[in-house]
Every structure is written in C-alpha cells, then in structure tokens.
Write a protein that binds this DNA or RNA. Structure first.
Lengths: 335, 335
DNA sequence: TGGGCTTCCCAAAACGTTTTGGATCGCGTT
DNA sequence: AACGCGATCCAAAACGTTTTGGGAAGCCCA
C-alpha cells in the first residue's frame, strides 16, 4: 500500500526524489523535502525492509547464537544481555534475531546456514571456548562477528569480556586478608575460556599469598556446584572458603554445605560470580562479582555494527572490570 | 555469487526451470531436477532471503516482544521459552527476532513499527494484561499474533496459557488438607492476567474450604515478595502458609520470614510458581508449580505459523495443566 | 549571447527471487 | 493430415527499494 511509488504519485514527484528526500540527501530542495516528510508521516510510510535489504545487500539483522539446551540456556544473564543488545541495535534500525545451537558436531552447520544464506550481517558468538571452531570458521570466511568472551584463537577478533582472571585473583586475596588459609574453587568446565580464566586468577592468587587451595570442576549450574562442593567437603582438609565460578554453582554449593551441618558465612565463606537476582536473597545472601551486563550488551551491539561497517577487529577488544559485591556469605574476619 | 542466475548459466537452463526444480514443482523432468539439485548442492546454493521475501511478501520471521526493563526481563522462564520457540520455528525455515518494549504509552509504537514496516509475519505477545491494548491493536489491523497468557479482551485470539487458576486452587486445598487454617497469598500486580487468575484460584479455594486468608500484592520479583511478606507477617493473625504468585517472590518471602526468626517449612509453609532453577536449591527447597515451558514454546511457535497460514484463532487456544512440585518448604502435616 | 555552474529533479537499471502465461516438441488420435 | 494433449521448458513481469547518470532550469560572468 504505502510504497514509495504511491507516495510519489500523490506528491506529483518521482520515486527517486521521494526516496532521496526521505534519506536526507542534500540533493532535494528544502521545501520539497518538508513536503515529502509530511506526506510520509501522514501516510504512515515505512520502507519495505525486504526491498531495501535486497537492494542494499544488507539484512539489517544481527544474529545471536544461543548455546541452547539444558544447563546452558537458563542463565538469567543472557536474557538481560539480549535486551540491551536489542535496544542498542534498534537505535540503528537493526533487528536482533536469535538462533539456538548446541555445541557439538552440528554446531557449525547453524553458522554456515547463517552465512551462506546471507540471513544476517553479523553474528554474536557467546560462551566462547578456548578451542573454538566457530571463530576459526567465521574468520576464514571473513564474516563479521563479535564474541562475548575470549578464546585461545590466535587471529584478531572483536570481543567484550569481563576480567575474570583479575576478579578471582582479587577475591582470593580478600579471603586471605580475612584470615582464610585453605580456599577451594568450584570451577566450571575448563573448555570454556571464562572458566579457565577464573581458575587461573584463583591459582595465581594462591601462589601469591602462599596459601593452600583445591580445585574441583563441575557443570556451571546448581547441580554442578552441589556435586563439586560435596566432593571438596569430603576431603580431609576442609577449606574455610569457597570461590565458585558462577552464582548458580554457589547456590548449589550452599545446599551441599548445609547438608553437612556447616553454616555458610560462619564455617565456610562463599563467593559466586554473576550477581544473579537470586543471589541477593539466598540464606545467607551470596557475596558475588558482577560484570555490568547492560553495558556489555550495548558494547557488543556497537562492535557488531562497527564490524559490519568494516572496522578492524583489532580496535574492537574490551576487557571490562568486574565489581566485587560483599554480602553475608563472606562471613567475618577469621582467626 | 551463487545466485539462481549463475546456477542456470552453468546448467544451461533458464532461471525459471532451476527455481521450479529446486521448489519441487512437477513441472520439470526428473532427470533435470536431479541435475539441478546436484549442482545446487555442489555450489552450496542458498536462496537470497531478502529477494524471496520481497517477491513472496513474507518475511519468514516471527517476532517476540519482550517486556524489557528492570524486574521484567530477568525471568529465566523467558529464555527457555525463546529457545523452544526458536527451535520450532527453525524447523519451518522461520527466524525468531526479538524486540524489547516496555509497557507504557509508547508500547504500541513498537508494534506499529513491526506491522507497518512488514518486518515480521507474526507477533508473539507475552505478559498479557487484563486490559491489553496490544491485542486490540493487532486484532483491529488484522495482524497475525499469538499470546502467551490470557486477557479480558473479548474477541477471539490465539493463546497458550497455564491453568494458574486451577493450580492455585489446588495448592490451597493441599495446604488445607495438611491442616493449615490461615493462608496468605503474595499476589503479583493484578493488571497482569496471570496474577489475577492465580489470585482467583486462591480465593475460590479459600471459600470452598471455608478457611481464612489474606492477600497482599507486590511486584513479581524477589524484592516484591520480600516486601509483601513483610507486610503480611506484621499482621496480628499470622498465616501458617504462604502461596506466592512466582518463585522469585517466594524467594524474597523466604528472606522476610527468616528475618523474623521463623523457619520456612516448620513455622510457615511456602509455595511458589514457575520452578525456576534456584527454587530447588533454596533453603529449604521451594515447593512450586510448573508449566512445561519447552512444550509451551513449541505450541506458541506452531500457533504463530498456523495464524500466518490463515488459521482461525478460535481453533488456537490452549490452557495447559500446571504440575505441583512438592519440596521441603511445604513442611509436614500441621496440627 | 553563450558558456559554465548550481540546484533540483527524474528515468531506468539493478538487487535475486517467484510466478504468469505461454512456447515447443513429440506422440497418439481422429 | 490435422488435431489435441501432456511433458518440458522459458521469457518477462513483478516485488519496492537505492543508485547511477544524467537533464532542465536558472543564474552569473565574460
């Protein structure tokens, strides 16, 4: 209905002029431009996106591939991230589309379909792994992408990440300052870079403070934390503090600790990461670390747009500081 | 590069024939068809979606509008929902796009942009309200949509919803059977239909069992539950059980209860709704009710596709049963 | 007067697909 | 011998936009 042609007809102008008026070219008389804008407004004109996309060879779509599936999908973090990314993209007239792909042999198929079918202008890769075939593939075909999180991938790529290494290093030193001398770490699967970095920061701080530590790996959810904490607490030299790779794991650990008759914050200090909503309301409230998700999402969106515009990925890397949030689970000074 | 034209050229066929061969028309000789399919496969041909969309007047996109913003966005439920909707849509070659829109005066603008710009073939509306201008608008302009949740909107529309009324009715009767005689309800804002229905079921059960109850409304998150529970517990006749509109509220209530020196599951029974991951790991584990989210998402996707195909919304309504999940917060039999 | 420069406008091509409305050929039927 | 018909194929139009490559006035200056 309300096409350029119709608008042009009612205005007695050519399609070209109307189009250029709407796009704000200096090419068209001011009076004409105002007339066109008024008419477009009145007619409720919205350019047909398919036509514009076909002509310009751009989809005006950014796609985020979610690590779907049990234990992966239900992280509150991602929803907030989606919200902020979408908002930022919308400011530029871009849409955010979502697609699920489990890690595994078929994972790349999803990416190939996106790339070959020109279904999107850029891809946002999340949950990066140390060895990540997705980054290799996208780099090889020269497709614009942005990663949330880092990878061992050697070539330059755009990313935003929290400084998990520093955050966990800092957390251990805090515990040490409180008097803790045996500290455990519930690590997430080390194939994920974020897990690896947090674990490294943890280990570095241990060495630096010259104190004793143990690391046990579990899945990054409540069940994983529960199981890993159970194993750790069964050891002879029980830790007096536990630093967990994620809040979900920490909540699982809380239960394991309770079941052993110990009290979080008194017998064992507990720290998580993410600051999920439930963390502030656990018993006791969970000390945690927070990466500002909204800002991260916006930055990811901006980087994606920049990559579409041809920006060099070398200029698009950002490691954000992580804020420590002290809560009751941290306990009082020890000794 | 790999366009129909290129394919046709290498095959010595017309664009028409190649196109029809790929679409499986009976119009083309079997031998030719095989030849085309093989060539397409070899060339890695993927139809340009913008061109196809322009020509067919379909976007092959379904859009979900998320109630963004604080206290709305961070519900784990929606992420899982997105995953299952997306998966089901992908089976039909449809993409799922996401857009954020806060309830408020500008909310409809978002919907208008979607509709007028033909940016999507169908819209999924979530967090329905009793008075919901979105349903009115979409119905008036005749745009295909599917709602997650019901509304007082009088005209027929497609929806999937959990039977919250029955679920809360049932929950109260369970508590009554355990001996509870004073039961409180932490309601979510009653403008939302889900909150209204859960409250109705609660109230109906009270009348039926002839027992005493109190209802306090709060926002549907931890903070709202904390506040509402605080108010309720400050009353003279303290309830012995609390039924909360959402798990998040229940987790907030837990903290309020603890702060008064009461023990959940002993002094006060507590029931939530949603079965969020944190519910199983709270202290004590939270009894709750669960709507199968994955199935709901799939159904929503199917309904959206059906509406795009022109199906009558009258045939697309489904109220799913809600499952009760008993956990420690329910406590033992009373009296 | 005429050439050159702006300013404003436009016709037509192009993006890659689907679909319409035949065209061609071979074969069996009348 | 002419006709009809099924089986294959195809040229061209169309979807609605952006962009290219000018064209027509109007004005200034020589």
């Amino acid at each position: 209905m309300s096409s350029l042609r119709a608008l042009a007809q009612t205005l007695g102008l050519s399609i070209t002029t109307v189009s250029r008026a709407l796009d704000g070219y200096g090419d068209v008389a001011l009076a004409t431009r105002d007339r066109v804008l008024a008419a477009a407004e009145a007619a409720g004109y919205r350019p047909n996106s398919a036509a514009r996309r076909l002509r310009r060879g751009l989809t005006e779509i950014v796609t985020m591939v979610l690590p779907a599936g049990p234990g992966h999908f239900n992280e509150p973090l991602y929803l907030e991230l989606l919200g902020s990314i979408g908002e930022r993209l919308a400011e530029q007239g871009y849409d955010l589309t979502l697609i699920a792909a489990l890690p595994g042999p078929d994972e790349l198929k999803t990416y190939r379909r996106l790339v070959d079918g020109r279904r999107t202008d850029a891809i946002i890769v999340v949950r990066t792994r140390r060895e990540d075939a997705r980054l290799r593939y996208l780099t090889d075909v020269g497709f614009p992408f942005v990663a949330m999180g880092r990878s061992d991938f050697p070539e330059p790529y755009a990313f935003v990440d929290g400084d998990g290494e520093a955050a966990f290093h800092d957390a251990v030193l805090r515990l040490a300052a409180l008097g803790h001398r045996r500290i455990g770490h519930l690590a997430a699967p080390s194939a994920f870079t974020f897990a690896h970095l947090r674990r490294s920061g943890f280990a570095r701080a241990l060495r630096q403070a010259g104190i004793f530590g143990a690391i046990i790996e579990g899945s990054a959810d409540e069940a994983g934390g529960y199981r890993a904490a159970g194993l750790l607490l069964a050891q002879s030299a029980q830790p007096t503090a536990l630093v967990c790779a994620t809040d979900s794991m920490a909540l699982g650990a809380m239960r394991a600790i309770r079941e052993r008759g110990l009290i979080v914050g008194r017998d064992i200090a507990l720290i998580g990461h993410d600051n999920i909503p439930a963390a502030a309301f656990s018993d006791p409230a969970l000390a945690t670390m927070e990466l500002p998700i909204a800002a991260t999402g916006r930055r990811l969106a901006e980087m994606a747009l920049a990559r579409i515009g041809g920006a060099d990925p070398r200029d698009l890397t950002e490691i954000k500081p992580v804020e420590f949030i002290s809560r009751a689970s941290l306990g009082e000074t020890r000794i």
